[in-house]
């Protein structure tokens, strides 16, 4: 060994290279492509949702859906119907409002949602004055 400096140099270099392998493995970024984004977004399947608001007494009625023009009664009314076209895979929630005469107690607002004549949801909200709530529409 003492007589072969080139061999010694080779052995030292090989030893250093071996020691460097784990360090290199730990510090080098993975050459693979970035992981794909989860849950590919499905193309939208649109459906028309018919909404009927019925009030127990004349009230100012309104229904609002995200990203769509809201429907409102011109004045106090007993009912209001509106249609919204939405992604059937993930229909938006409906925000419903009925502003009753504050002197009238125990007022009720019924909200019925239909698709192609089939009732998807039927809820009633009670209160006095402003009755407001959110209706989540189940998938058809």
């Amino acid at each position: 060994m003492r007589g072969f400096p080139l061999l010694r140099l080779f052995l030292v270099a090989a030893g250093l290279a071996l020691l460097g392998v784990p360090v290199w493995l730990l510090t080098t970024p993975s050459p693979s492509a970035p992981p794909p984004a989860s849950a590919p977004i499905e193309p939208e399947k649109m459906a028309t949702y018919d909404v009927l608001l019925t009030a127990s007494a004349p009230a100012h009625l309104a229904v609002r859906v995200a990203n769509q023009p809201s429907a409102e009664s011109a004045g106090p009314a007993s009912s209001l119907s509106a249609s919204f076209t939405m992604n059937a895979a993930e229909p938006e929630d409906l925000a419903v409002f009925a502003n009753f005469d504050p002197a009238t107690s125990n007022c009720a607002l019924r909200v019925e949602v239909r698709v192609a004549g089939k009732t998807l949801s039927d809820s009633t909200f009670w209160g006095t004055g402003l009755v407001e709530d959110v209706v989540a529409i189940p998938n058809p």
Binding site: R64, A66, N87, D93, E132, V134
Partner: peptide
Amino acid sequence: SKWVRLQLATLPKA
């Protein structure tokens, strides 16, 4: 809780 739901109803689900 109702206030939160009403506020979030204005936010598209997407």
